[in-house]
Structure formats: structure tokens, C-alpha cells
Design a protein around this nucleic acid. Structure first.
Length: 1217
RNA sequence: GCCCGGGUGGUGAAAUGGUAGACACGAGGGACUUAAAAUCCCUUGGUCCGUAAGGGCUGUGUGGGUUCGAGUCCCACCCCGGGCACCA
């Protein structure tokens, strides 16, 4: 009887489903085991072979544990909120819920086809209201909590309020309450707190809540009607379509994950996760210990700005409106007043023309916005009008910078020249009106803020909606704050360097140095990050002309600006110790600044001494101390002087939690007086409302703003939605008790299932999902909802299955020949050294060529298909195929019959390119090069002829193992005969797979070989954690194995031929050796070697012609986790009525593995020469004697006595001559 | 630059410091067959000697080291992949 997987597998799939074989009960009488896979995003592309790799592995473990008597929770669900469905909805108008449902159904079908032992009764979907009710509920708990840094745990916000009511807030509380992670906050007394109005209190609390509202800049593209991610914006225009993009400020929910930074680091030590993931998380959190040091500025003018108290600001709203520091504030007010009373002629003329309501709206003059004083501004329209005087180059640069800066704050800047205003002020007025009319009302003008009294435009007034600026700080006026990890090197400080972005730069720079410094700042700021990366070695900077005072020595220290200091890290300033820090050393040597040795034995003439095991040699109280002691001592001294304190700095930033999107969990928040409040629990779930379009509104409000009656008791509801990681941060808990309507999961269920014992998923989630997921778990623990602090004990990252990808590559036999595709006439121009040789007309591929072909991206990569109008060659649209694995993005571009297309790498630099026919890639030949033959109107392979004979070879697709390279431009290494004119393609890899090689043809593989073969094959490919190329060449081998296994049970005819005869010793040995290896390997998750062992067993039993039940039956059980269908069928044929899943795992017995003899490899000087068999029992001495007595050994010794003989029992004999 | 992985036949890969290449694919040869499919058998790291049986040398990225013995441990370097990046 032939092994025919088709019928068998169909039969068992149905039976499992009908019998609910894989249902899991919360059965406390059995030990539990929780195996979880990272759930997938149900994309339209369906599963590809990368998905099931991890699922198969976890399924094997789950089944194995079940055989061992564990109650195993092994659920599956969908991370079903997400962008692709929304994108599709925008294009087609179809509700994302519908496509999501369809896609999930398809996934289910495919997953079922592979025979997973999931308990589908426990399926969860993050987009299901009964699920996201609890995501919202957890959000509210976060909103209603703050982090007590002293106790290192989250507590209810009510306890913080109680504390404020009793003791207020003191600067000395900063560490306890904010962990010094926040900006320094201003203080208030209990009486003050109690006197605050509700609104003020709420806004202060925002600084403590774990889910809080702040504001952030987004890239708003009016033409596309959407917010774009940073990497979708290139040079100020959208990557797709090239539409202008504006920076726009939007209210933004955030998660205070920074509060948990320390615990997230500490917890890693308790986890059985891979080192690389742990390292990635540590890196991401980026803890550094050190000190905050304050250097007083020398310049007398630069006295600190008044504190809020000193300024006499009462405890009212206004104290929270300030956006700049106190120091800047006083300076700017002074200057604004001065400028207002001394206008230029043109300014005054224009002011008279546009003042009052003569433009239809109110215009203010000499107004402070952020740190600039602008000439005129309309607050509601966020339009700045500037009148420029004489313009020289430097001024132009500065103006450009200022325009950019204001633009970032949502302002448009228009400029008029002095002459324009003086010549025809009315024309200028009309243009201003036109500009004003063209802009929507963006901000409310606060009429209370009368210009004469308050020239300050606060962010409060400018915000789209209410938001919260930092509490007033103590101000940085008069001092430079630096963070250092090496306060022990303080005596080696010879200068201080500020980041170009540092706001002190323009304030401390004396007038005579202003031009030079600002020119540098402009240049440095404009240097793109890529430029900075490109030449790390290049040192640049400028002296500000200012000095500060060394806190220990009292000496003057020059203040420089250097672009090696980053604005976004620490305080944006460093104390430079060229003797102890290489970057400082580079800077100092470049500019001839003094370099002082800080450590004994350092040779500072060539490089800095960064050793941390050195002795400090600086004169003073640190001399002779080792680094760690010196650090402690230095901090003590700083504290005594009030010049600094101990500080731990983290790189981790709070996580943005709001998305301007439709297809996500609504945030359960409403606004009263512009202040956010949590919805009562009884209102949950707050369901996604219906909207007419899934697009943002014209003025940039998120899609939910389109919903009718989107309010709670008349108060507007939040319109942003949660990000993809919200649901995935706690879904593992819901599986424990998925139908619970009164709680996210019952305490009993949580108590029983506890942590995930084994979590399997891709490593690309290292710093995203896996961090948030730990964060939420810790939070829920803190608030007493669960009793463990880490979600997953063991984590295994399955490697990517990578496709053999095809690189675009230009191939030229003669490097002087260049082929350039001209889009317009659709011609390929071939030039040699610039001289046109000929032009070839190339038709755009026709629809028939490509219809129905899927274009896929493998993990972590993406591919853009540009669609061009075949008639004109004009660009129509881009379809992106993107895959960031599992739950992030999996998408596809299916070529539809209406579209014609060419392929273009992402960057857009290749706008002129020859037309590809991706279909040619279906050729499997490694060395298939293609060129276009106009006469035959088809692309031809060069295979028949040597490449050298071709007149021209241009674009080709070169197979290569996929590399997830995001930034490397140099990965393409062409083979010898190819020239490599460009490496850029490597950055943008397109992946194509034909039917035979397809990564996605799971149904196809299952159809042809069966699910058991697929399962075995994926496991057989190699170690689970290693990434490996997918090719189906080897699949025959595993299929043959299953057939041989099947044949062991069946005689020559169709009969089931298992006998009850007693097994022989060799048969038992094969059995037990296999059981041993397989049992141990599953525990090690080394599946490829277990499959190999099964193959060995089958081959050996085949040779032994073993048909004995006593041998075959245990083997069936052992194979069941790997190949459940065939195992069930054989199990039934062996006469069992119950599912094999209930069978007890067969134990191996060492007695059958005992050998009587061992064949010793006899080596001479480590080189094996012959084998000699001796009884196992023979001791080392006797073995040695027997070996030396052997004639062949004697012959090799040539009569000489061996120097030494090493006998390792049951291993080896080594004779040293 | 820093931090993690990794580098073994034509390919996927095995190998508690103890016979490198298990197992599988592919390839070559053979058997069966009218033929194909399927199945089975043999060979298969390189190289040299030998008619053959057999034997020698060499071989796990490179160079050193430890050891009776190194793919495995140590040092230095090269290359590949991933993460972070002028992180103070």
C-alpha cells in the first residue's frame, strides 16, 4: 500500500476538528506548559514558509510536552489591527474589518493545512471589541498610574494626588518622583497645589501618568491626506508622488516606558533569552552611570533668569505656559520691547498698513515665538511675516534656518524686502491677505494675551488643541550642564563643547564672534545625519568666545561648539577631557587646545587614555585614586559645591502611543476643558466608529474625527488610535481565559498558566514588541493584576527563511558602455564614453505577461513597484510590498491585469531605468542574464553564448542569498566576469519567486507532498535559530523518508504487516538510540538532528527488515510531534481507538544501548591509523597492552618504544612516538 | 567605531577537547523496466601513488598558541550577518 498523504491528512484534520482533539482546559490537576508563537498579522499574501517555521517548532514542543503529561496551552490568534488593511480600505473603500476577516479566514485555512495543534476555541484577535475592550482597560490603568521611583513600581495616581495635597512637590523630590528622567520640574507647596484649579492639576498630573499626552511633530502631506513616516519623506516631499510635506504639531499620547528603564535592564538577567536579544535591549535602553556637572558661565551679563517665584508669577495657569527657559525669556522680552519701540521705516509702514483688522484678522508685531522674535505674525493662521533689511549671505543662512525652525513649529514664513514694502505697502497687504486666506485656522488666538502685556506666544496658544509644556524649570541660565560618565577626569577638562543645536550657543556668543559662530552652527545643523556618519573622522567646531568656570579649580574654561556633540543625548553638552576621551582628544588636537593627562602612565601625545582600570594623576584631591573611587569622590565634591550630582542617564525615550489612523484601538479618553479624562470602565469597549472615508480630515485630524457623535456626554473623544504594539503587549494573558467578559483574564487562569514557558518568534521584534510586552507585564504586576513580572521565561528566535533573491545589477562587458533608459520615448540609449551608439525601443511589458503573478518581499525588506501609464510612460502609482515579518507588515503586490509596470528600486534615484520583466526571474538558472532582443520582441538569455560575445549586457538579476541590509551600499560583490558599476541596488532588493521556488506555495507543497513532509522538511533545513535560504530541492528527501517509514508497516502487498514477534537486540538498539536522541534533541530544540535520527532509524530498520510492533509502535509516538497525520493513521492501524496525542511518550532504556565491544580508533600522534575492537569492560591498562601487542601497531612503531600511550576508555587510543 | 552572532564539501548541514563531513539534496555510475515514474545498489572534500586490494599527503576563514590530541579552548587578524551608532 502506497503512502498517500492526501487522504490521510484530510481524514485526520477533519477528525481533530470534530473531536476537538486540541482543546485545552484550565486543568489544575496537571502540570502546565505554555508555548506561544508570536501571532501573525493576517496579510492578504497568506502564509509563506517563514511563518510556519516557528509554528512547527513550537507545535513539536507542544505535542511533545503533551505526550509527557503536561497540560499544554498552545494557542494562536491574529494581530489584526494594522496598516495594510487600512491602506487597502483607503484605496477600495472596503472596511478593514472585512478584509481582515477574509485574510484571517485564509490564514486559518493554511494553518489548518499544516496540522497545528492549536486550540482554536482560544483564538484572539486584537481588532475584536471583546479583546480591545481590555487593551483599552489596561490603557486606562496606565493613565491612572504613576511611577514611584523610590519604590521602583507603579502606583495609583490617587496616591500621588494625596501626596501633593499633603506635602506638595519639592525639588528634592525630583529623583523620587521622576527618577530624574524628566526635565527638572518646578516646585509647589501643598497649599499651592490645593489652590490650583482642576485644569492646572490635571495638566501637572500629565507629567506623572504612565500614559500621558504630549505633543509631537508629524509629517503631514496634504496632497496624500495622510501622515507620513520619516522614511517616507525625502527632501521635503513625499517619497511617493513627490508631494510637499509639512511639519505639523499634533497631540500625541505616549507611554512612560522610561520609568521602567532600570527594571527592564535588571529583568534581563532572569531570562532564558538569547544573548543577542538581551544585548539589543540593553543597548536600546542605553543606561550610563555618571554625574551631572554644572559649569557656571563667566560672563557677568549672563546671570540666571528669574525663577517663577522670582518673577512673581502667581500659581495660576500662566506659569505653565512658558516654552523657553527663564534665562531666554527675560532676554527676549527685553529685546522685543526694544525692537518694538525702534522699528525700521519699512516695519513701521507695514505695521500701520496691516494693524487692527485690516487684513481680516489680527496681526501681532515683534512677537516671540519659541526663541525667535518675528516681525509680524497671525497666530490663528500661523503665518509669520518678515521684513528683511540688507541681506548678506550670512543673514540669508540664518533666515533660512529660522524659517526652518518656525516651520517645524507649524508656522509658514513669508518675507518681503524693505523696498517692496516702502514702494507699495498696499500690494504687500493684499499678498498677506491672500496668504492668510490660503491657510486654515490652525490655532486659536487667545484674545486675553494682549500684546502689550504679553509678547510671548506660548505653545499653549499655538497648539492645535490643548497640550502640556514642561513645568517651569530652575532654568539653565548662567550655567552649562553636562552629563559625564567619568567625573573622575574632571581635572582634565580643558574646554566644554556644546552641540550646534544647543540653545545657549547664540546667547553666550559675544557680538564680535557672532558671525563666525552662527555660520558654523548653520553649516553643522544642515549637515545631514548621513554626512555626519560618512566622515566620522572629520573634526569641526568653533570657539564661542565665552568661558565658563571649572567647579573645582575655578579656572576659566573655553566653551566651544562642535558637531561631535549630539543635541539629543544627555544635556547636549560635554565637558571635554582630551586626555581621557578620544573624541575630545581629536577635537583638541585639531584646534590646538591643551591636553592634560588624567591617568598615570598615559601617553597623551598620540591618543587619549580611556582605560577604566587606571590611577588618576591629576593634581588635587583625586590624585592617586583608582577610577571607581575617584568617581565617587568627585561626585561627593560636586555635591558639596552644589555643582553637580550623581545621575543615571538612559537613551531610551518614551514610546509614542498615538497613531493618526483608523484601524487601531480607539483610545478611551475624552476631553473636558481641553484636559483628558479616562472613560469610565462601564463605557468599554469604546468601539471603532463608522466613518465615511478612512482618510484624515482636510485639516489633518485623524480619521476618527469624521465619525458622527464622536463624543462622550458631549465631550469630544480622542481621535487617535493605538499603535500595533498595544494589543500584542498583553495578548498572551488573554489566551489563558479568552472568553472572560468581566476581566482581561481571571486570577485563577493567570495563576494556573503563569508565564509563557516557551515563546517563539522573530528576532526583529527585539526592541519593539519584546520591550513593550515586558513593560506592560511589569506594570500589571505592580498594580497587582498578575503575579509575575516577566512575560516569557524562555524565548527562541527562529531564523529567517530567506529567499534566494535576485539583485538588480548592471552588467557590462565593456565598462565604457552605458545603457540609459529614457522613459519618455521608452527607449534605451546605449552610449560608449558618452557617444550614442544606438537607441533601442523597448515596450513596456504587457498585462498578459504579468497578470496574476505575486511579487513578494521576504522578511525585513520591501519592494516598490511603480506603475506607469504604458501610453505616455508617466508615473501612475506605487504599490509597495513590504514585510517586516510576522506581526508588523506582510504585504504583497499582486499584479493586476489592468496595470502595466516597471520595477524601480526604492530610492527613486533610478527613475530612468530599463524596463524589467520580473517574470524572467522565474528562470532558475543561476547564470541567466537577460537582454532585450528588439527584433524578436523578447528578452533572451545569454546562457547559450559566452558573455563576451554579446554586444551589450545591461540589467540583470543576480541570485543571492537575501541580506537584510538597511544601510549598506556595498553588499553586491559581483562574480569575476561581471563589472560592478553601481552597488546601490543592494539597498533595494526585490524578491521574486516563481511557482516552483515560491516561498508562499504552502498549499502547493502540501498538495504535492503533504503537510507532514512540509513540517519535517522545514525542521530538517537546519538549526531553528539560524536563518537559511529556502529552496525546495531537498524536500524529496523528507518525503522519501516518510514513505520508507510507512513501508515499514506495510508488507510487499497492501497488507498491514506489523507482527507481534519479539524484537531482536539490534532492533531494540535502533529504537532506543532513536528515542534517546529525539527526546534530548526536542528538549534542546535541535529538530534538524532529530529528523536525521529518524532517517537513520528507518534506514537501519529497513535493512533489518523489522516489522515488529514492539519497535515500531514507540517510534510512531516519537514521530507524532513531527508528523502528526501519518502518526495518527499508523496508530489507528496499530489498533488504537484514541488519538495518538494521548499516548505516553516512550522512554528510552540505556540497557539496550550498552555495547559489548568498542572499536577503538588507534591514532599515532593524533592521527587515526587503524581500528581495534576490545570489550567495553576492558580497563585502560589492558587495552594499552593489547594495542601494543597488535602486530600492525608494532609494525607502525618500527620496533621503537612509544613515548606515551593515552587510553581514553570507550573513546580513543593515542600513541605518541 | 561599539555590542552580539557566524565562517566546515557543489548545496542544506552533523560533530560532550577524542575517527571531520552524520543525515539529506545534487551529481556520477549501475540494477529493475518496452519506456517513464517509483524503488534499490555503488561512488562522491581535495590531491597523489597503485592494474587492483589498498595506501600517502592535505583539509573546518587566516596566522600563532595551549594540548598526547583542536572545527571545538586561548590570542591576533580577515570576511559575512544582525543590532546600535560621534551615547559623553
Amino acid at each position: 500500500m502506497q503512502y498517500d498523504p492526501k487522504d490521510i491528512e484530510q481524514k485526520w484534520r477533519e477528525k481533530w476538528q470534530n473531536d476537538k482533539t486540541y482543546r485545552v482546559l484550565n486543568d489544575a490537576s496537571k502540570p502546565k506548559y505554555y508555548v506561544l508563537d508570536m501571532f501573525p498579522y493576517p496579510s492578504g499574501a497568506g502564509l509563506h514558509v517563514g511563518h510556519p517555521l516557528g509554528y512547527i517548532a513550537s507545535d513539536i514542543v507542544a505535542r511533545f510536552k503533551r505526550h509527557q503529561g503536561f497540560n499544554v496551552l498552545h494557542p494562536m490568534g491574529y494581530d489584526s489591527f494594522g496598516l495594510p488593511a487600512e491602506q487597502y480600505a483607503i484605496q477600495t473603500g472596503q472596511h478593514p474589518a472585512k478584509t481582515t476577516e477574509e485574510n484571517a479566514a485564509r490564514y486559518r485555512q493554511q494553518l489548518d493545512a499544516i496540522g497545528f495543534s492549536f486550540d482554536w476555541d482560544r483564538e484572539v484577535r486584537t481588532s475584536d471589541p471583546s479583546f480591545y475592550k481590555w487593551t483599552q482597560w489596561i490603557f486606562i490603568q496606565l493613565f491612572e498610574s504613576w511611577f514611584d521611583h523610590e519604590a521602583q513600581r507603579a502606583r495609583p495616581i490617587a496616591e500621588l494626588i494625596a501626596r501633593f495635597e499633603e506635602q506638595g512637590w519639592h525639588p528634592s523630590d525630583a529623583c523620587a518622583l521622576t527618577g530624574d528622567v524628566e526635565e527638572e520640574l518646578g516646585a509647589f507647596a501643598a497649599t499651592e497645589w490645593n489652590a490650583f484649579d482642576e485644569r492646572t492639576k490635571q495638566r501637572i498630573l500629565q507629567h506623572f501618568r504612565l500614559a500621558y499626552l504630549s505633543e509631537a511633530w508629524v509629517n503631514w502631506c496634504p496632497a496624500l491626506g495622510t501622515v507620513l513616516a520619516n522614511d517616507e519623506v525625502k527632501d521635503g516631499v513625499s517619497e511617493r508622488g513627490g508631494h510637499p510635506v509639512e511639519r505639523k504639531r499634533m497631540p500625541q499620547w505616549s507611554m512612560r516606558i522610561t520609568a521602567y528603564a532600570q527594571r527592564l535592564i535588571d529583568g534581563l538577567d532572569t531570562l532564558d533569552w538569547s544573548d543577542s536579544i538581551k544585548e539589543a535591549q540593553r543597548n536600546w535602553i542605553g543606561r550610563s552611570e555618571g554625574a551631572l556637572v554644572r559649569f557656571k558661565l563667566k560672563n557677568k551679563d549672563l546671570t540666571p533668569g528669574p525663577s517663577p517665584e522670582e518673577r512673581g508669577v502667581s500659581a495660576s495657569d500662566s506659569r505653565f505656559r512658558e516654552t523657553t527657559n527663564g534665562f531666554l525669556w527675560t532676554k527676549l522680552i527685553e529685546r522685543a520691547k526694544h525692537m518694538r519701540s525702534n522699528p525700521t521705516e519699512a516695519e513701521e509702514l507695514l505695521w500701520q498698513t496691516i494693524r487692527g483688522h485690516s487684513t481680516g484678522g489680527r496681526i501681532r508685531r515683534q512677537h516671540i515665538i519659541d526663541k525667535f522674535i518675528v516681525d509680524f505674525v497671525s497666530i490663528p493662521k500661523q503665518l509669520v511675516i518678515e521684513v528683511d533689511g540688507d541681506i548678506h549671505d550670512l543673514q540669508q543662512e540664518e533666515d533660512a534656518l529660522r524659517t526652518l525652525h518656525l516651520g517645524e513649529r507649524g508656522f509658514k514664513v513669508i518675507r518681503f524686502r524693505n523696498e517692496e514694502v516702502l514702494r507699495d505697502p498696499e500690494a504687500v497687504r493684499l499678498r498677506i491677505i491672500a496668504e492668510l486666506d490660503a491657510r486654515p485656522d490652525i490655532a486659536k488666538d487667545d484674545e486675553r494675551a494682549d500684546e502689550e502685556h504679553s509678547p510671548l506666544s506660548t505653545e499653549e496658544e499655538l497648539g492645535v488643541r490643548s497640550h502640556f509644556s514642561p513645568l517651569p524649570g530652575r532654568g539653565v541660565g548662567g550655567e552649562v550642564e553636562v552629563f559625564t560618565t567619568r567625573p573622575d577626569t574632571l581635572f582634565g577638562v580643558t574646554f566644554v563643547t556644546l552641540a550646534p543645536e544647543h540653545e545657549l550657543v547664540e546667547l553666550i556668543t559675544p557680538a564680535e564672534r557672532r558671525d563666525e559662530v552662527m555660520a558654523y552652527v548653520t553649516m553643522a545643523k544642515n549637515r545631514s545625519e548621513r554626512d555626519r556618519m560618512a566622515d566620522v573622522k572629520k573634526v569641526s567646531g568653533v570657539f564661542t568666545g565665552a568661558y565658563c568656570i571649572h567647579p573645582f579649580t575655578g579656572k576659566e574654561v573655553p566653551v566651544w561648539v562642535g558637531d561631535y556633540v549630539l543635541g539629543g543625548y544627555g544635556t547636549g553638552a560635554v565637558m571635554a577631557v582630551p586626555g581621557g576621551d578620544q573624541r575630545d582628544w581629536n577635537f583638541a588636537s585639531h584646534f590646538g587646545l591643551p591636553i592634560i593627562a588624567v591617568t598615570e602612565g598615559a601617553d597623551i601625545s598620540k591618543e587619549a587614555d580611556e582605560r577604566k582600570d587606571a590611577i588618576i594623576c591629576s593634581e588635587g584631591f583625586l590624585k592617586g585614586l583608582a577610577v571607581p573611587e575617584a568617581i565617587t569622590r568627585a561626585i561627593d565634591e560636586l555635591v558639596k559645591l552644589g555643582a553637580g550630582e550623581r545621575r543615571i542617564n538612559y537613551r531610551l525615550r518614551d514610546a509614542a502611543f498615538g497613531r493618526q489612523r483608523y484601524w487601531g484601538e480607539p483610545i478611551p479618553i475624552y476631553y473636558k476643558d481641553g484636559v483628558p479624562y479616562a472613560l469610565p470602565e462601564s463605557e468599554l469597549p469604546l468601539k471603532l466608529p463608522d466613518v465615511d472615508k478612512f482618510l484624515p480630515t482636510e485639516d489633518g485630524e485623524p480619521p476618527l474625527a469624521r465619525a458622527a457623535n464622536w463624543n462622550y456626554q458631549g465631550h469630544p473623544l480622542e481621535t487617535t488610535t493605538m499603535p500595533g504594539w498595544a494589543g500584542s503587549s498583553w495578548y498572551f494573558l488573554r489566551y489563558m481565559d479568552p472568553q472572560n467578559e468581566g476581566r482581561f483574564a481571571s486570577p485563577e487562569a493567570i495563576d494556573y498558566w503563569q508565564q509563557i514557558d516557551l515563546y517563539v518568534g522573530g528576532s526583529e521584534h527585539a526592541t519593539g514588541h519584546l520591550l513593550y510586552f515586558r513593560f506592560w507585564t511589569k506594570f500589571l504586576k505592580d498594580r497587582g493584576y498578575i503575579n509575575f513580572d516577566e512575560p516569557a521565561k524562555k524565548l527562541v528566535n527562529q531564523g529567517m527563511i530567506v529567499g534566494v533573491s535576485k539583485y538588480f545589477q548592471e552588467v557590462r562587458v565593456d565598462p565604457s558602455i552605458k545603457a540609459v533608459w529614457d522613459k519618455k520615448p521608452k527607449q534605451l540609449h546605449i552610449r560608449r564614453n558618452g557617444t550614442l551608439l544606438k537607441s533601442i525601443e523597448i515596450p513596456v511589458p504587457t498585462a498578459q505577461d504579468v497578470t496574476g503573478h505575486h511579487v513578494f518581499c521576504s522578511y525585513g525588506c520591501r519592494l516598490d513597484l511603480d506603475f506607469f501609464d504604458p501610453a505616455t510612460g508617466d508615473y501612475i502609482k506605487t504599490v509597495r510590498a513590504e514585510d517586516r515579518a510576522d506581526s508588523d507588515f506582510v504585504s504583497e503586490a499582486v499584479i493586476d491585469s489592468k496595470s502595466e509596470y516597471v520595477i524601480r528600486p526604492l530610492d527613486g534615484w533610478l527613475r530612468a531605468e530599463p524596463v524589467y520583466r520580473p517574470i524572467v526571474i522565474t528562470d532558475r538558472a543561476v547564470d541567466a542574464y537577460w537582454h532585450y532582443e528588439p527584433g524578436k520582441r523578447q528578452w533572451l538569455s545569454f546562457n547559450d553564448e559566452p558573455l563576451e560575445n554579446q554586444e551589450l549586457a545591461f540589467w540583470t538579476l543576480r541570485p543571492e542569498i537575501e541580506k537584510m541590509s538597511k544601510s549598506k551600499m556595498n553588499v553586491v560583490t559581483p562574480d569575476e566576469k561581471l563589472r560592478k558599476p553601481i552597488g546601490l541596488f543592494a539597498k533595494h532588493i526585490g524578491y521574486y519567486f516563481n511557482e516552483a521556488d515560491s516561498i508562499v506555495r504552502i498549499p502547493g507543497i502540501v498538495e504535492k507532498y503533504g503537510a507532514d513532509t512540509l513540517r519535517l522538511y522545514e525542521m530538517f533545513l537546519g538549526p531553528l535559530e539560524q536563518s537559511k535560504p529556502w529552496d525546495t530541492n531537498g524536500i524529496e528527501g523528507t518525503f522519501r523518508f516518510l514513505r520508507k517509514f510507512w513501508n515499514l508497516f506495510h508488507g510487499v502487498g497492501d497488507a498491514f504487516g506489523v507482527t507481534d514477534d519479539a524484537p531482536t537486540k539490534p532492533e531494540l538498539k535502533v529504537l532506543h538510540a532513536t528515542l534517546k536522541k529525539v527526546t534530548e534533541d526536542i528538549e534542546k530544540m535541535s529538530f534538524n538532528t532529530s529528523v536525521a535520527q529518524f532517517m537513520i532509524a528507518v534506514n537501519e530498520l529497513g535493512s533489518l527488515k523489522c516489522t515488529k510492533r514492539a519497535v515500531l509502535e514507540p517510534l510512531v509516538v516519537a514521530l507524532a510531534p513531527f508528523a502528526p497525520h501519518i502518526a495518527e493513521e499508523l496508530w489507528q492501524k496499530l489498533g488504537h481507538n484514541t488519538s495518538i496525542t494521548t499516548a505516553v511518550w516512550p522512554k528510552w532504556d540505556a540497557q539496550y544501548l550498552v555495547e559489548d565491544n568498542f572499536s577503538y580508533p588507534i591514532s599515532f600522534n593524533g592521527k587515526t591509523r587503524l581500528q581495534l575492537e576490545f570489550p567495553i569492560a576492558l580497563d585502560a591498562k589492558s587495552v594499552e597492552a593489547a594495542v601494543l601487542a597488535n602486530p600492525e601497531v608494532q609494525q607502525r612503531l618500527e620496533g621503537k618504544a612509544p613515548k606515551k600511550v593515552i587510553v581514553v576508555p570507550k573513546r580513543i587510543v593515542n600513541i605518541v612516538v
